[in-house]
Design a protein around this nucleic acid. Structure first.
Length: 573
RNA sequence: UCCGAGAUCGUCUAAAGGUAGGACACAACGCUUUGAACGUUGCGAUGUUGGUUCGAUUCCAGCUCUCGGAGCCA
């Protein structure tokens, strides 16, 4: 073993196992991967798993194989002009970059259309492909089904000359959509239906967002993908499980072209299980239905698991990368618990988001023994003791405050550590107060709390008694009003009802968005900038909405609540 | 039914013939001017039947169950 041999990568998933053994066996000297989205929609967190895998592989092995040419391409799989658009390409690039990855080369399958055409002619000349003039219904019928072998197309034995002529005339636009297709000549009785003379090209008189009107025939995925991989020198072509049956065709295409085309690599396809998450939907179709049916407010609606949605919701790229690393890569279908994602964002924001105070549902509190006009500035740290960061601000304190409605109960149980008649609590960063009276409206609702404060308790524990609870507050005279959008899980059920088209809409969580207006923020938040994140103490992590928030009319999105063991215990009762 | 793939704690995932480990979730306790965070402890799994072996989650065979496959989508 020569001493410059690469140290084997730390194997922590089956893909890396494969790559390590390829490297050891010297089948490759470098690793080239690609992320190949079709530009026909927006990326979601399932794509993030693939992005982290493919780009992560390049990053890992570049470290182990310096100067080897190890890299990861971004390639748009743009073979169906009917559905694809430049707009989607821009969104996808933004999302990949936001996630923190840079591609080594931006490619399009359409870059290779000319080569693909030439290779198709080669296949025809080799007797491996033919022009079929059956209708789509006939092709379907001739294909048979999973238990019944298909039958040969009557056009299967056309001469090479006629096939070449027809194929070139297809390209020249002499036929209408659907009149002919180019098919691989493989085996109509193959138990793998993908091998029953699969279509290679179809006629589509449709402009393409990259090639314009140059083409009116377009290659199919199963033909274009292996060729694109081979041309780019991809070594490990990683895709999801539903392509397992396509692998045999992938290999057929590469094997039948490799001697002729002199590809720089002989790529191999490997399949891993796509990400599923409970309490949400991940399929393109369902996402599209939510957006087009106006069940949500666009592709970046913070309830959606799209990258754009998660970004607007306030998720950080790090949290998503950590999540992807945490769920791992394997071949078994699985559904990850949403709690895992929520853990990742809390874990990241815990040391990134400064603490501030905000009252979501205000209840007036008046301190009877505090001077009417006095305003004290209380020093409040932005960070808790266990976050090693410095910084604080002054929070104004006066006779009239707002506290959270949920922090007061008229007749509290004994494990309620907050405020009630006669009870004492700590006001965060400030004094302890004791409730002496309540004011009710005509309907008997509590509209104001009267308290006295203990001047000895600023920065000191009260003597002779233990005060267990601490609540947040905001000075009523200094509060800044804001709109808070409380987001929760998209679905109220773990898994949407399977099957039936739109049935999943019934599982939508009606409380996935709750809009609160007139929330009271501490004044330091008045100048919060778009996309700034905070922890509102005892409530959750929030971000200034990037679209709707304006100075003087602040809008915050709740990213995730804090864990609340008290609320959880109450629920169980 | 045919072909392909898979099956390990509630969930996700390691171990690749040699003590079934980690993370999330959950529970208890500790700490606490956030009922947060953090810390400690606990709970908890190799689908099934055989075979090979000193030893099997791992290798072999059968069975069971799950997922994918019959677009001129990807």
């Amino acid at each position: 073993m020569n001493s410059s041999a690469p140290a084997p990568a730390k194997a922590n998933d089956f893909i890396r196992d494969i790559i390590n053994s390829d490297l050891e066996a010297k089948r490759h000297q470098k690793v080239i991967t690609r992320f190949p989205p079709e530009p026909n929609g927006f990326l979601h967190i399932g794509h993030a798993k693939s992005i982290c895998l493919n780009f992560g592989l390049a990053l890992d092995y570049r470290e182990k194989l310096p100067n080897s040419g190890t890299r990861c391409h971004l390639r748009f799989d743009d073979t169906d002009p009917v559905k694809e658009d430049t707009l989607f390409e821009e969104g996808i690039q933004e999302d990949v970059r936001w996630l923190g990855f840079n591609w080594d080369g931006l490619y399009h399958a359409s870059d290779y259309f000319e080569k693909m055409f030439e290779y198709a002619e080669h296949l025809i000349s080799a007797g491996k492909a033919y022009v079929c003039s059956l209708t789509d219904a006939q092709i379907k019928e001739f294909r048979g089904n999973v238990t019944t072998p298909g039958k040969a197309s009557p056009f299967r034995e056309r001469s090479i000359e006629e096939n070449l002529d027809l194929f070139r005339r297809m390209r020249n636009g002499e036929f209408k959509d659907g009149e002919h297709v180019l098919r691989a000549k493989i085996d109509m009785s193959n138990p793998n239906m993908k091998m029953r003379d699969p279509l290679l090209y179809r006629i589509r008189h449709t402009a393409h967002h990259m090639t314009g009107d140059k083409w009116c025939i377009y290659p199919m995925y199963d033909y274009a993908h292996p060729i694109s991989d081979a041309i780019e020198g991809i070594t490990h072509s990683i895709c999801t499980l539903e392509f397992e049956n396509n692998r045999e065709l992938y290999d057929w295409v590469v094997d039948n072209l490799i001697d002729y085309a002199k590809f720089p690599s002989r790529p191999h396809q490997y399949e891993f299980a796509r990400l599923n998450l409970n309490y949400t939907v991940m399929s393109k179709r369902r996402l599209l239905e939510l957006v087009e049916g106006k069940h949500v407010d666009g592709w970046d609606d913070p309830r959606l698991p799209t990258i754009a949605g998660l970004r607007r919701r306030g998720y950080t790229p790090e949290s998503i990368r950590n999540f992807c690393a945490g769920v791992g890569v394997a071949k078994a279908n699985s559904t990850v618990d949403m709690a895992q994602l929520e853990f990742c964002i809390r874990d990241d924001l815990n040391h990134k988001a400064p603490r501030v105070m905000a009252v979501l549902k205000p209840l007036k509190l008046v301190i009877e023994n505090f001077p009417d006009d006095e305003v004290q500035e209380q020093e409040a740290s932005y960070w808790p003791h266990d976050v090693p960061k410095e910084g604080s601000r002054k929070v104004p304190f006066c006779k009239e405050l707002y506290i959270e409605q949920d922090d007061f109960m008229l007749d509290p149980p004994k494990d309620f550590y907050r405020l009630g008649p006669g009870k004492e609590v700590r006001l965060r960063y400030s004094y302890c107060v004791t409730c002496t009276d309540v004011v009710k409206d005509a309907d008997g609702n509590v509209i104001e709390i009267r308290c006295t404060y203990d001047p000895e308790t600023l920065g000191a524990n009260p003597v002779g008694r233990k005060v267990k609870g601490t609540i947040h507050w905001v000075s009523a005279r200094h509060a800044v009003d804001a709109e808070l959008r409380l987001y929760d899980r998209l679905l109220s059920e773990e898994a949407p009802p399977a099957g039936k088209d739109s049935e999943f809409l019934n599982a939508i969580n009606k409380n996935a968005l709750q809009v609160l207006k007139g929330c009271k923020l501490e004044p330091s938040l008045a100048n919060a900038k778009a996309s700034e994140r905070f922890q509102f103490e005892r409530q959750g992590y929030f971000i200034v909405d990037s679209k709707d928030s304006k100075p003087g009319a602040l809008v915050f999105n709740r990213i995730v609540t804090l864990k609340d063991s008290y609320a959880r215990a109450q629920q169980k009762k």
